[in-house]
Write a protein that binds this DNA or RNA. Structure first.
Lengths: 138, 138
DNA sequence: GGTTGTTTTTTGATTGATTCAAGTTTATGA
DNA sequence: TCATAAACTTGAATCAATCAAAAAACAACC
């Protein structure tokens, strides 16, 4: 788990100002992968006090735009965030309880990126979501 | 494009009652692949008159549960529906304008279905979304 | 160290897709 | 034709997310 100064360096390296809400949110995302916005708000408020929900929304958007975190939105779920970026992994989602786990790519570095017929689209990312049941839901 | 009686047979074969709203919605989804709920409501109202938005929501859910249509929700988009089911195709989405096109699977019949580490999940579907830019958005 | 201009946060309201609830109508099978 | 469960209508509610304006904090320069 990165230290506070690690996080500060990360934020600074993305040309973003270093503020306590940003460090708190980034830390929360590191500590709670796949947490939704509401959960992140609660974690941040517990760990360091009052923050407006609007600030958390803004910070999440700023960090996402800067590429420090990644936003995922499986069907039927609200937005969730994770700190693993740029390593080309995917997700498996439980149809029953919504649990999410990371899955390394099965096919290599850029799976399925060569679509058989792209209709003239220029593709830069292939997002894969596996659907199934988690161990706890049988 | 299927005829009305084709659609009636489809609905009946799924053990659903045949009603005008259902036929109208199913027809609209066949004619407008990847349309969102609002667009479907408008098409249905043009083609056969007043229907409550609630009825369209209900019908879309019933048809989806019956497997006659499929619901897709790329990040940042509202729910969209299509009538191509059970043929294992995927989608490419334009980051700029949101346009969606069908893409046949690159890897074979069940692409990427064998995740390298499934964390004990039992996986039954792999959903792939390609992100890029459509020809119109450069 | 103070000042200025920009960025960030707060506060409070608003949006908009989707769902809930209760009452009425309709389709289907006997 | 009738009975009954399913489907539809009307109207309200929910809730994640966004918008807007004012206040605060920060960075850089004098």
């Amino acid at each position: 788990m990165p230290t506070t100064s690690d996080l500060e360096r990360l934020v600074r390296s993305a040309d973003l100002r270093v503020t306590r809400p940003r460090i708190a949110v980034l830390s929360a995302v590191h500590e709670h992968p796949h947490a939704d916005t509401d959960a992140i708000i609660n974690v941040v408020r517990e760990s360091f006090g009052d923050v407006s929900h609007q600030a958390v929304y803004d910070v999440l958007r700023a960090l996402t735009a800067a590429g420090l975190i990644r936003r995922i939105q499986p069907s039927g779920s609200v937005s969730r965030y994770e700190a693993r970026v740029d390593d080309n992994h995917h997700h498996v989602v439980c149809r029953s309880c919504g649990a999410i786990a990371d899955v390394d790519c099965a096919v290599g570095e850029t799976p399925c990126l060569t679509a058989s017929n792209a209709h003239g689209f220029s593709i830069d990312e292939a997002e894969v979501i596996y659907w199934g049941m988690c161990p706890a839901c049988v």
